[in-house]
Computed example of a mutant assay.
Amino acid sequence: MTATSSHPQARQALRLPRDFALITVAIDAVMVLVNMALQLWPDSPNAEQLRSAYALPGVWVPMVFSIGMAWVLAAALAWSHGRNALEKRGVDSVARLPQPRVRYGAAYVVVLLLNFYALSPLLYDLQLLFMPGGRLHESLGDTSMRAAMPVFMFLQSVAQLIVLVLGVWVAAWFALRAGRADASDTRGDDVPAGSSPRRAVALVGASVFASLQMWSGAALSRWSSVSQGLDGAGLLVAWVVPPLAAFALAFWGGWLGATAGLSRVRPFRAVAASVLAFALVQIGCIAIALAWLALAVWLHGFNSAGSLVGFALALVLVYTLLAVLLTRAATRGFYRRYL
């Protein structure tokens, strides 16, 4: 770290990644609270019905953890963009930016409003097509709709993920675009060694991986009846444990794949590596599970509860290994030129 880092402006610039993350979560929280207040206001239509629905564990548990996972992902992305700016331009150049926090907050609010008033109504209209009485329901029938509904829910989550990733990037780009001309005379080697880009890569990748795991699980739960009989405690375990485990495994794999010699974060590469790793993990687990089931049926191996438990434990072990190894390989592949 150079001597300029001891100046007040330099210290303020070094706090920019953290401030971006805090601003992101604060704005998201305010938007959620305002939306909930408008929905549950006593004079608003359907307020009593919504209050009764939100009191059900099957409603508030998925909603709370989905919102929380989105906040974690948005905060990690915002932090990584701020970190990437320090690496690319240097502390002195970032310190000379005019009000980057205010500009970021204003741009992020605009992004959220566009998402709320443009994308969300569009996705809701598309979702109505799959509901009973919708156009697709009438033409496809119940059996086809049961298969199409989880696919649509997962694709809807992917669309929201893309909007979230691009929205944070747009806000960060707007906040950091000023002062680009003077970035060429400053290098990013005065960034403190304690804020490693390796950690940022692993954090972003793990957040994306865990988000995809949660949202794909939510889509499958609408298709299957496994989670319908769970009570409040069971729902909490079902919504807490898988995302936390996925986050830990992906963080470990991303940390191993980034290696200590990484010089810059490059957030979009972390996102792409995580998406690729997640897709490969799901494909690998499905292929191994189908092969195991086919072999068990051929050998008549599923004649007891113990064999089913063994199959489940083996699948968990396979998922653990694939999540770490494939995240490591995907991260290293995307960052190979920058090690």
Score class of each variant (00 low, 15 high):
Met1Ser: 14
Ser6Arg: 14
His7Trp: 10
Pro8Ile: 06
Ala10Cys: 14
Gln12Ala: 09
Leu14Pro: 15
Leu14Gln: 10
Arg15Cys: 04
Arg15Trp: 07
Pro17Val: 02
Phe20Lys: 00
Ala21Ile: 08
Leu22His: 05
Leu22Gly: 06
Ala26Arg: 09
Asp28Trp: 02
Ala29Thr: 13
Val30Cys: 01
Gln39Asp: 06
Pro42Gly: 07
Pro42Tyr: 00
Asp43Pro: 06
Gln49Asp: 09
Arg51Asn: 06
Tyr54Ser: 10
Met63Trp: 14
Ser66Phe: 08
Ser66Cys: 06
Ala75Glu: 08
Ala75Arg: 09
Ala76Asp: 00
Gly82Asn: 04
Asn84Cys: 07
Leu86Ala: 00
Leu86Met: 04
Lys88Phe: 12
Lys88Pro: 02
Gly90Glu: 00
Val91Arg: 00
Ser93Lys: 01
Pro98Val: 06
Arg101Thr: 13
Ala106Met: 03
Val111Cys: 06
Leu112Ser: 09
Leu113Gln: 01
Leu114Ser: 12
Tyr117Arg: 07
Leu122Pro: 05
Phe130Tyr: 10
Phe130Ser: 04
Met131Tyr: 05
Gly134Asn: 11
Met145Pro: 12
Ala147Tyr: 15
Ala148Trp: 06
Phe152His: 08
Met153Phe: 14
Ser157Cys: 04
Val158Arg: 01
Val168Cys: 09
Trp169Ala: 08
Val170His: 04
Ala171Thr: 04
Ala172Leu: 09
Ala172Gln: 12
Gly179Pro: 09
Arg180Ile: 03
Ala183His: 06
Ala183Gln: 12
Ser184Thr: 11
Asp190Met: 10
Gly194Lys: 15
Arg199Tyr: 01
Val204Thr: 07
Gly205Phe: 10
Ser207Arg: 12
Val208Gln: 04
Phe209Ile: 01
Ser211Phe: 10
Gln213Met: 08
Ser216Asn: 12
Ser216Pro: 03
Gly217Thr: 10
Ala219Gln: 12
Arg222Gly: 14
Ser224Trp: 13
Gln228His: 12
Gln228Met: 10
Leu235Gly: 00
Val237Lys: 03
Trp239Val: 05
Trp239Gly: 12
Phe247Gly: 15
Phe251Met: 07
Trp255Val: 11
Trp255Glu: 08
Gly257Thr: 01
Thr259Tyr: 04
Leu262Arg: 09
Ser263Val: 14
Phe268Ile: 13
Arg269Val: 11
Ala270Asn: 07
Ala273Thr: 06
Ser274Gln: 12
Leu276Cys: 05
Ala277Ile: 00
Phe278Gln: 03
Ile283Ala: 14
Ile283Met: 14
Gly284Gln: 01
Trp292Ala: 13
Trp298Cys: 05
Gly301Pro: 14
Ser304Pro: 07
Ser304Asn: 03
Ala305Asn: 13
Ala305Cys: 05
Ala312Phe: 01
Leu315Gly: 15
Leu315Met: 13
Val316Ser: 10
Leu321Ala: 13
Leu322Val: 12
Ala323Asn: 07
Arg328Trp: 14
